[in-house]
Computed example of a mutant assay.
Amino acid sequence: MSNKKSLSDVKWSVLDLAPVVESGTVTESFQNTLDLAQHAEKWGYNRYWLAEHHNMPGIASSATSVVIGHVAGGTSKIRVGSGGIMLPNHAPLVIAEQFGTLDALYPGRIDLGLGRAPGTDQVTAQALRRDLGNMGDDFPYQLDELRTYLDPDRADSPMKVRAVPGEGQDIPIWLLGSSGFSARLAGREGLPFAFASHFSPDNTIPALELYRNTFTPSEVLEQPYAMVGANVVIADTDEEAARIATSLQQQFVNLVRGNPTKLKPPVASMDGIWSPYEKAALDQQLRTSFIGSPETVKAKLQAFLDETQADEIIVNGQIYDHDARLRSFQLLSEIVK
């Protein structure tokens, strides 16, 4: 693509994992989530998404639809949605009803982002699904079933089961992915696509190319619309941002070790916490993490945008101290104007 985009040309959004910090509670996590959402709305962010994860002590947004309602009820303009709902964990009818309810309560503000991974480990996936025969292979059929509940005109015959609320409501559906599967499906269906580049950087460009090359115009979109994820930690200096970012690094180390924990306080150095192998693995997996002062991060984000040519960037900020988290998102809003 020849037309270079500047940071002000694209939309900016927030991905919130509702972090539970080591010294905090889930109640405090939800209070902080709403506070960040209210600030994000004031600072001009486009949307505020929450993610479905399970069996993770440091992530409180497992009942994603409920938290979306909490955020939407405490804000007035910003779009609120899922980044994403892991559809194979649920009956499509239930998701149609839940998001139909949210859309009826907060008209024109709700997004439904869908993923096909379990959002957890295999043991927890079995507890969620009971039957592990479905590991996302039939995601296209689940997607079609969900879309048909929302729009019965898609059905070949009269619907015997109807989604109330949900039926006839115009709820934007996004496909989320960290590989090429959902990229191809989103392209084929003419839906907007969000790629999880914040933890799958190597697959970002191939997935975006696949999405754009397979895109078929639809009643939803005439042209492809791609959003990419990024981890961003901004502070007044590079050194302070690097210190704050050690909370994210510790969380990933523990996740790699199979021992997910609450978000830990930052440390002066990660030396002695991670092994050389773990450091190399995290450096690779967290390559789409932009950490530093406003000037440092602005240059890195522009290079990321040049590479991806994204239409929107959604930012995750796993920061231990809530005031520092607010400060990071405020500084980001200022450098992308």
Rank of each mutant, 00 (worst) to 15 (best):
V80A: 02
A183H: 05
H198T: 03
V94C: 05
V228M: 04
G187K: 09
L132W: 09
A242L: 01
V21Y: 15
D271E: 15
D156E: 10
L112P: 00
L221E: 05
Q223C: 02
T216Y: 11
L263E: 06
Y48S: 12
D202Y: 10
V297C: 04
D151Y: 11
E240D: 15
S200R: 03
W274F: 04
A63D: 07
M270S: 02
Y225R: 13
Q318I: 11
P118F: 14
P265I: 15
A303C: 04
D151R: 14
E41K: 08
A60N: 07
L102S: 06
R257N: 04
R327N: 09
K4C: 05
A63G: 12
E41Y: 08
T120I: 04
E295K: 13
L282F: 06
F252T: 03
F252E: 06
E222Y: 07
A37N: 04
A241H: 10
S157D: 08
M135G: 07
A207H: 05
S197Y: 12
P172R: 08
G119S: 05
I95N: 07
I234C: 11
Q309R: 07
L208C: 03
R212P: 00
I78W: 09
R188G: 00
D35P: 02
D138W: 01
W12D: 02
E219V: 00
P158Q: 06
M56E: 14
Y320D: 06
D138T: 13
D170K: 10
S23F: 10
H322F: 08
T120H: 08
I335R: 06
D131S: 15
W12T: 05
S179L: 08
A280P: 00
S218Q: 11
V21C: 13
V267A: 00
L87D: 13
D323I: 13
N3Q: 15
L286V: 10
V66W: 07
A196S: 13
D138F: 03
S62W: 13
V336R: 09
R162S: 09
A60C: 09
L87Q: 04
V66C: 07
V228D: 07
Q169N: 01
I313T: 01
K264P: 00
K337Y: 08
K160W: 06
S23E: 14
H322T: 05
A163N: 00
Y211R: 00
S76G: 00
G229S: 14
T246F: 04
L17Q: 15
T237D: 02
